[in-house]
Amino acid sequence: MVKLTDVARAAGVGYGTASRALSGKGPVGGDARARVLEAARELGYTGDATARALRERRTRSVGLIVPDMTNEFYTASAEVLQEVLRDAGHHLFVATTGNHPGREQEALQEMAARRVDGIVHVPSGPSTAAASPVPVVELNRYSGRSVPAIVSDDFVGVKELTELVIASGYTDVAAIVGPDTYSTSRERLAGFKAAAEQAGFTEKATTGKRFRIMSSDFSAEGGASAMQTLLSDLPQAVMPLSSRLVMGVLKATRESGIRVPEDLSLAGYGDPDWFEIWGPGITTFAPPLAEMGAKAAEVLLDLINGLEPAHVVSRIPGTLRIRGTLTTSRD
């Protein structure tokens, strides 16, 4: 049976350093942590998880609660989250809620029953949940609870994307946003309106610079329905502010014979792989999904180890990706 002393010897560190590196507790200098983890993998060291859990009063497990695992938002963040937690010796349990508050409450109760050490949670809206007995970090959205939240800086990102659309010469722009129960919808809408109003646009104006806002759920069907509503008075540019809304808009335009970008320019949100290869490529604001997952894991580990985060809501900047669906206005 491989012992911790064997791991320490193989990594060229002391027993205490090896213990801290594997437990995630306490400082480990230089590249010692990476050497210890590599030595543990090569030697097949697992330790006595049950005994360690009893000593530490921890299960070395973390819960992840997300709406679904088909959205690239959650799969990309969850992949990095799992890597960071695994390197710190934690296992990840995943529950999906479908954005239903009732299922969300059930998932929180189930995670508590499993005695997880902490939870990373994508909330479905304003929270009515009781205080959690374990540390919680919110991811992508924030509910208003007094817990840390790691989100994309959507206000700034969408504002810059809207400024890019306006700078391209468009004076009639429509945005399609999600339900206002989600903090993501509110931040994206606020960014869009801030840029449009600063440029002198007026909502629902009949002449001059105008912007329109369509609300939908975050689905391809919702995006298609919103786009169908716009067909009778087609804007010059449309901004569906989620990747699924983009998909719905493209479906509706194809079925209606509207060409993107020849007849209608488009700037979206998110950056799944197909955005780069569809047609001329989709101009978009890409949120920092990997960075958000890594930051959420880092903050949760700090909370588990008794440290407090510096900020309640941490907003991480994303990136504009300029591609062919946004062209210079032809008017």
Results as ranks from 00 to 15, higher is better:
residue 282 I to S: 15
residue 124 S to M: 07
residue 23 S to F: 12
residue 27 P to Q: 10
residue 12 G to I: 01
residue 117 D to L: 08
residue 190 A to L: 06
residue 70 T to S: 14
residue 222 G to Y: 05
residue 39 A to Y: 07
residue 205 A to M: 09
residue 219 S to W: 01
residue 221 E to T: 09
residue 243 S to W: 14
residue 316 I to P: 00
residue 67 P to W: 00
residue 24 G to T: 09
residue 217 D to W: 10
residue 323 R to K: 10
residue 93 F to M: 08
residue 131 A to N: 06
residue 316 I to C: 02
residue 224 A to M: 05
residue 159 K to L: 00
residue 142 Y to K: 00
residue 171 T to D: 14
residue 317 P to I: 06
residue 85 L to S: 06
residue 28 V to F: 05
residue 223 G to N: 12
residue 237 A to W: 05
residue 172 D to I: 02
residue 197 E to Y: 07
residue 58 R to C: 06
residue 128 T to P: 01
residue 214 M to W: 13
residue 254 R to E: 14
residue 216 S to G: 05
residue 78 A to Y: 03
residue 193 K to H: 11
residue 77 S to A: 14
residue 285 F to L: 13
residue 4 L to S: 08
residue 86 R to N: 12
residue 257 G to Y: 05
residue 133 P to A: 10
residue 74 Y to A: 00
residue 192 F to Q: 01
residue 292 M to S: 02
residue 269 Y to M: 11
residue 287 P to D: 08
residue 238 V to P: 04
residue 111 M to Y: 01
residue 112 A to V: 15
residue 330 R to P: 02
residue 17 T to K: 07
residue 186 R to H: 01
residue 156 V to C: 00
residue 277 I to P: 06
residue 20 R to F: 08
residue 313 V to W: 07
residue 85 L to R: 04
residue 263 D to F: 13
residue 327 T to D: 05
residue 181 T to E: 10
residue 153 D to P: 11
residue 15 Y to S: 06
residue 55 R to T: 15
residue 36 V to Y: 04
residue 229 T to W: 11
residue 118 G to K: 03
residue 141 R to I: 00
residue 26 G to Y: 14
residue 63 G to S: 01
residue 94 V to S: 08
residue 182 Y to R: 07
residue 147 V to F: 12
residue 168 S to T: 04
residue 242 S to I: 00
residue 194 A to C: 10
residue 220 A to V: 12
residue 272 P to T: 13
residue 165 V to Q: 05
residue 256 S to P: 12
residue 57 R to Q: 14
residue 43 L to N: 15
residue 40 A to V: 09
residue 117 D to T: 08
residue 114 R to Y: 10
residue 252 A to M: 09
residue 121 H to Q: 01
residue 156 V to F: 06
residue 11 A to N: 04
residue 312 V to M: 14
residue 90 H to E: 15
residue 214 M to S: 08
residue 179 P to I: 06
residue 296 A to M: 02
residue 176 I to D: 02
residue 323 R to T: 00
residue 11 A to M: 01
residue 14 G to S: 15
residue 209 K to G: 12
residue 174 A to K: 00
residue 43 L to F: 09
residue 223 G to Y: 14
residue 297 A to Y: 02
residue 207 T to G: 11
residue 261 P to M: 01
residue 159 K to Q: 13
residue 241 L to T: 01
residue 124 S to D: 08
residue 311 H to F: 02
residue 44 G to E: 14
residue 167 A to Q: 10
residue 225 S to L: 14
residue 157 G to A: 05
residue 145 R to D: 00
residue 260 V to H: 08
residue 16 G to A: 13
residue 31 D to I: 10
residue 303 L to S: 12
residue 306 G to C: 11
residue 145 R to F: 07
